[in-house]
Amino acid sequence: MKLQILLALLTLLTATNAWAAPSRLLERAGSWNVMTYKSKHGKVCYFYARPQTRSPAGLDHGDVSFFVSSSPKQGVLGEANFVAGYEFREGSVVGVDVDGENFTMFTKNDSAWLSGREQDRKLLHAMKKGRTMTVRAISARGNPTRYTFALSGVTKAAGDSRKACR
Results as ranks from 00 to 15, higher is better:
Lys38Glu: 15
Asp60Arg: 14
Phe149Met: 02
Asp160Met: 07
Gly78Ser: 10
Gly142Met: 07
Arg24Val: 14
His41Met: 05
Val64His: 02
Leu124Trp: 06
Phe149His: 05
Asp120Met: 05
Ala15Asn: 11
Met1Lys: 00
Asp60Thr: 13
Asn81Leu: 12
Lys156Cys: 04
Ala112Ser: 12
Trp113Phe: 13
Val44Gly: 01
Pro22Leu: 09
Val68Pro: 05
Ser152Gln: 06
His125Lys: 11
Ala21Cys: 04
Ala15Glu: 15
Asn17His: 07
Arg89Thr: 11
Leu25Lys: 04
Arg141His: 14
Leu6Tyr: 12
Ala29Leu: 09
Asp120Leu: 03
Lys43Met: 14
Val94Gln: 06
Leu6Ala: 09
Val34Glu: 08
Leu7Ala: 07
Lys122Arg: 15
Lys128Gln: 15
Val135Asp: 08
Pro22Ile: 11
His41Cys: 01
Leu6Val: 07
Gly75Ser: 06
Ala84Leu: 02
Gly62Met: 09
Glu27Ser: 15
Lys40Trp: 13
Gly159Asn: 08
Asp63Ala: 12
Gly91Asn: 01
Asn17Gln: 04
Ser39Gly: 11
Phe47Val: 11
Gly159Lys: 07
Lys108Pro: 00
Gly130Met: 03
Gln52Val: 12
Leu124Thr: 13
Pro22Ser: 07
Leu59Ala: 08
Thr36Glu: 15
Gln4Thr: 12
Ser39Ala: 10
Gly58Thr: 12
Val68Arg: 02
Ala157Leu: 01
Ala157Gln: 03
Asn81Cys: 10
Gly130Asp: 08
Glu90Lys: 07
Trp113Tyr: 15
Ala157Asn: 02
Glu90Asp: 03
Leu114Ala: 03
Ile5Tyr: 02
Ala29His: 14
Trp113Pro: 01
Met133Gln: 10
Leu26Lys: 06
Ser39Leu: 06
Pro51His: 08
Ala140His: 13
Lys108Ile: 12
Thr145Glu: 02
Lys128Val: 12
Ala84Phe: 06
Gln4Glu: 14
Leu124Gln: 09
Leu12Arg: 06
Tyr37Gln: 03
Gln4Cys: 10
Arg136His: 11
Ala8Phe: 09
Val93His: 09
Leu26Arg: 12
Tyr86Leu: 13
Ala49Phe: 02
Leu12His: 03
His61Asn: 00
Arg89His: 06
Arg162Asn: 15
Gly142His: 07
Asp160Thr: 14
Glu101Trp: 00
Thr155Leu: 06
Leu151Val: 01
Ala164Tyr: 14
Ala57Val: 09
Val135Phe: 11
Leu10Ala: 00
Glu87Gly: 02
Leu10Ile: 01
Pro56Cys: 13
Leu25Gln: 10
Arg141Ala: 15
Asp97Ser: 09
Ser39Phe: 05
Asp97Gly: 04
Leu59Trp: 14
Ser70Trp: 11
Ala137Tyr: 04
Asn81Arg: 03
Ser115Asn: 12
Gln4Trp: 15
Ala57Tyr: 03
Phe88Pro: 01
Trp19Ala: 12
His41Trp: 05
Asn109Phe: 09
